[in-house]
């Protein structure tokens, strides 16, 4: 899609469930440096499997993962390098926190990178600050609320200063203000971000680019993919309200292509106002 070379890519990926059924079949996926990609798809479609392959946690049955053009070999040394650059945060914080207190948990990655205690410590403080959880540093992990634990897992990944951050359903279970705060935090990160979510409205608002996992493949494109009714149905998604409303109002969906797709409430309001004032619907 872009002429810039992909930072992280999956080529002809085949991944199977332990039982033997294929989750992904010859799936391709690429992310360009600095882009924000929303990954959508039904429950069980293979979003998490794709993220796990991209992070190196899961070795695909076939196909290849490449970082900056270099294919990932799944030996110890290559994986070590890969994990320092690509970090995955899974959905359930209980399965990712394993230290007694917050600061100790966030310091886990930096210490494993071989940083000396002072350098590791400054990384920890930096990412606690970025996630707005400095006040929790001394607290035992098991006493935190769900939303707080989610922030700690993200802080743990951020403290490794990855070039790509992969997030699986980071907003699930957060209240609306928590979602807004998290999205603001992500905007502050310099990493490339791939975010898996079920929230099509959020995906449309936040992402530069979309990837939809359906039929064991990944379809990538711009936000106008969310206007494609048959694709949405196949992927068990729904049309975001932004597009749904404009369709109801009789706008020509063909005109809402590429950068003309309205994302925010303000965008939609602008499209409606323009059309009310008699201008064409773009």
């Amino acid at each position: 899609m872009k002429s810039a070379p992909p930072l992280l890519a999956a080529h002809r990926l085949v991944a199977r469930f332990p039982g033997g059924d294929a989750v992904l079949r010859q799936a391709n996926f690429t992310v360009t440096r600095g882009r924000r990609v929303a990954l959508l798809g039904a429950n069980g479609s293979g979003k998490t499997t794709l993220l796990r392959c991209l992070s190196g946690a899961l070795k695909p049955a076939e196909g290849e993962i490449a970082f900056d053009g270099q294919p990932l070999r799944h030996d110890r040394v290559s994986l070590r390098g890969h994990r320092a650059r690509v970090q995955l945060v899974l959905q359930n914080p209980d399965e990712q926190l394993f230290s007694a207190d917050v600061r100790q948990d966030v310091s886990f990655g930096p210490l494993n990178l071989g940083l000396d205690p002072a350098a590791a410590s400054s990384r920890v403080e930096e990412s606690l600050d970025l996630l707005g959880i400095t006040h929790l540093a001394e607290r035992p992990v098991h006493q935190l609320s769900y939303g707080e634990r989610k922030r700690v897992t993200i802080a743990g990944a951020v403290a490794m200063r990855p070039q790509v951050l992969l997030l699986d359903e980071p907003t699930a279970g957060l209240d609306p203000a928590g979602v807004a705060e998290l999205m603001q935090t992500l905007d502050k990160l310099s990493s490339t971000v791939v975010l898996a979510t079920h929230d099509v409205d959020l995906a449309l608002m936040w992402a530069d680019e979309l990837a939809i996992v359906t039929g064991h493949l990944v379809r990538q494109g711009g936000p106008d993919m969310l206007a494609d009714a048959s694709l949405l149905e196949a992927a068990r998604l729904r049309r975001p309200w932004q597009l749904d409303l404009l369709a109801h109002l009789g706008h020509d969906m063909e005109m809402l292509r590429g950068d003309h797709v309205p994302r925010t409430v303000a965008d939609v309001a602008a499209v409606i106002s323009r059309s009310a004032s008699g201008a064409p619907t773009r």
Binding site: R76, Q87, E95, G109, N112, A157
Partner: peptide, 13 residues
């Protein structure tokens, strides 16, 4: 899952 999370943050090195 915890073991995988530890590996992801380089616990095995």
């Amino acid at each position: 899952a915890i073991r995988e999370a530890q590996r992801a943050r380089l616990g095995d090195v």
